[in-house]
Design a protein around this nucleic acid. Structure first.
Lengths: 206, 206
DNA sequence: CCTATTAGTGACCAATGGGTCATTAATAGA
DNA sequence: TCTATTAATGACCCATTGGTCACTAATAGG
């Protein structure tokens, strides 16, 4: 086989990209290291230069990905720190729904959902680094809304489930369970509808 | 090994029970037919008397399970056909949240979420037999609420995501991502909170 | 009892795939 | 240009496991 250029610095990331693609297609157990290597343009042996085992690849992958979605969400909330909480939450929900409609973005959380049961360490990592931060973020936003008088008091665990849940459902429905015969409305419409419902739900009753 | 009594009629169900347990612990690809057999109190060979292959076991399993949760939900809505839509939806949401807090009940949907990507046939089956029916059910309930003047007009796809999503999130958070250090409030409290928020969200604005 | 039937067994086969390592080739430095 | 270093290869090893099948033993019927 044609020998490829030596670019050791770039390898780990390339391998992880390939691993995410393969894992999310056939699952962790079903993925062959040789396929991951091939997709990264390497031989199997080279993969083991950078990662000790297939399982450590999975962990590195989750660690690398944990930041991306939540990080972007935190950024969005922070940059809207002055705006009213209602508008910020609407932007956040819309942004998330749009992101998660993209199979490439949703591949990572989908993979975690699929494998968490089998790898308690990964479940714990995700719980602390993604779910925990999302809960914090929503909690703070919620406090702001309450202070501004636009949200009523809501438990954080209820808030987390009520905001993240529809996003999760939308992700699954627009990727693995997408029905070519009955296409759903475009994501921005769905996202807007969900935001309307949740925001209306958060409004204090007269 | 001690030979067990011959009870051919009961075998398929016993094997599927065992398969669900093993699949949901280690995933489909990670499950060994021999382990499934052992858990059912049989040898590997016997399993192949009843199921042609491991994959057909998975399909049979999903088919058998599809009914259970949605069937119960449909029953609940039907038996409350006279009551007001708001109260019915509250009961439905609470019932689902309680059910899905139980790892034994949630094992099946969790398994489907994990494997659907890899088995398009299973994804299609679940989409039609579970998600489709849930969408119908919520749509009808929604129509009733609108007719009674207690719900405002909501798109069915938004309704599906906004109702099923929090349940899904609750399921994942109370099983795979449960944090022993920060226990969530009891399920009935969470369920009530979610129902409050969603119902308030559905109320027509003055 | 004796025999026919069939549920159930478990040794075995063949393929698969994670992981290793001796070897090769590309580069850096002198 | 020559040598030392190291990125990368791929043939190989071997444990694992889906699936088969010749055989065993429990039951049913006469």
């Amino acid at each position: 086989m044609a020998r490829r250029a030596r670019r050791p610095e770039a390898r780990p990331d390339e391998i992880l990209d390939a691993a995410l693609a393969v894992f999310s297609e056939v699952g962790f157990a079903g993925a062959r290291v040789e396929d991951i290597a091939a997709r990264a343009g390497l031989s199997k042996g080279a993969v083991y230069v950078y990662f000790e085992s297939k399982e450590l690849m999975l962990k590195a992958l989750v660690r690398r990905l944990a930041d991306r979605v939540v990080g972007a969400a935190e950024m969005l909330v922070q940059s809207n720190a002055q705006a009213d909480a209602e508008q910020t939450l609407r932007s956040l929900l819309t942004f998330m729904a749009m992101q998660l409609s993209n199979p490439k973005v949703s591949a990572a959380p989908r993979l975690v959902l699929a494998e968490a049961q089998r790898f308690p360490e990964i479940a714990a990592l995700y719980r602390d680094d993604v779910i925990g931060r999302a809960r914090q973020l929503l909690g703070k936003l919620c406090d702001r809304g309450i202070a501004q008088g636009v949200f009523r008091a809501v438990d954080r665990d209820v808030m987390l489930r009520s905001c993240a849940g529809p996003m999760l459902a939308h992700m699954m429905l627009s990727t693995v369970f997408a029905d070519p015969k009955n296409p759903a409305p475009p994501p921005e419409v769905i996202a807007g509808g969900i935001a309307d419902l949740v925001l209306n739900g958060l409004r204090p009753r007269p």
